[in-house]
């Protein structure tokens, strides 16, 4: 019933982009993530799956230190991107987040024009020397977000006026505009209808050419459709992490099998 996973030859030439080792996350007294170690590869879509509350989103938010904005959250263990520990005191989360972009569950365009939504990141990071360059960056990002054709005539219209699927692609384009190396997506399709979902999934597959993509989803079908690697989380533990095809056809852990076949979750 699942799509056949993508051919495996693409995973042959891979290098590790993010390496997490023994990561623990606490929300106050609550131990939300226990001992998670995982290696995320470049030019690969990695899916985090698991029942709600299993910690997959929390772990995702550790990867670009979005949890810093929550006062009671505490992270232990090492997360290395290109060999640099991102929780090192010398690392500025602002720089980190430019390198590790994020797309959220609900489309959250700023109440600004489409153009300004995209240009926001490049502007704050000082990526363009002049207006023409900025225009260029915006166009390129919108094209990569596969939404250019739909909005090129109304770049000054407010971003909030787009449909749900368009908004989410706009948010992806916005994340892409800062030229990140990793793209984190927290259930990017959960607020979208099936047609918009299909468009976004197609986009994710294209984005793999340039970035390491990590996607959290509770749809197993979606994980099977878009990812090459899958990590299954359960109650804060990383239960199993392997090639998507392996997880969905021949899981090693009984919990993974139970989840995939719909007995838990």
């Amino acid at each position: 019933m699942y799509d056949i996973p993508h051919p495996t030859q693409e995973t042959a030439v891979t290098d590790v982009k993010i390496k997490a080792k023994d990561v623990q996350v606490y929300y106050g007294d609550n131990h939300a993530i226990k001992d998670v170690s995982v290696e995320i590869e470049n030019n690969t879509v990695t899916a985090f799956i698991g029942p709600s509350g299993c910690g997959k989103s929390t772990f995702l938010r550790c990867l670009n230190r979005m949890n810093d904005t929550i006062d009671i959250c505490r992270v232990e263990g090492d997360i290395l991107i290109d060999g640099d520990d991102i929780y090192d005191k010398r690392v500025d989360p602002v720089q980190l987040r430019a390198k590790v972009g994020m797309v959220f569950q609900k489309p959250n365009p700023f109440p600004k024009s489409i153009y300004d939504n995209i240009a926001y990141g490049p502007r704050i990071h000082g990526m363009a020397r002049n207006k023409a360059e900025l225009d260029d960056i915006v166009e390129r990002a919108l094209r990569r977000g596969a939404i250019w054709e739909e909005v090129k005539d109304r770049l000054q219209a407010p971003g909030t006026g787009l449909s749900g699927g368009q908004q989410q692609r706009l948010c992806i384009a916005r994340a892409v505009a800062t030229e990140p190396e990793v793209l984190l997506m927290d259930e990017p399709c959960s607020a979208l209808d099936p047609i918009a979902t299909a468009q976004v999934e197609e986009l994710i597959d294209e984005l793999r050419q340039n970035y390491a993509v990590v996607i959290v989803t509770h749809s197993m079908q979606q994980a099977a459709r878009v990812s090459q690697k899958t990590a299954f989380f359960h109650l804060g533990n990383l239960v199993e992490y392997d090639d998507t095809s392996k997880i969905f056809t021949n899981p090693e852990d009984s919990r993974t099998e139970s989840y995939i076949t719909g007995r838990i979750g």
Binding site: T69, G101, G121
Partner: peptide
């Protein structure tokens, strides 16, 4: 909060988020 998250996710500092979003 989603507005702020969106901005932080792009690497904006808190003051940039406040002033521009």
């Amino acid at each position: 909060q989603a507005m702020r998250d969106g901005s932080y996710g792009l690497g904006a500092t808190q003051s940039e988020t406040i002033r521009q979003v």
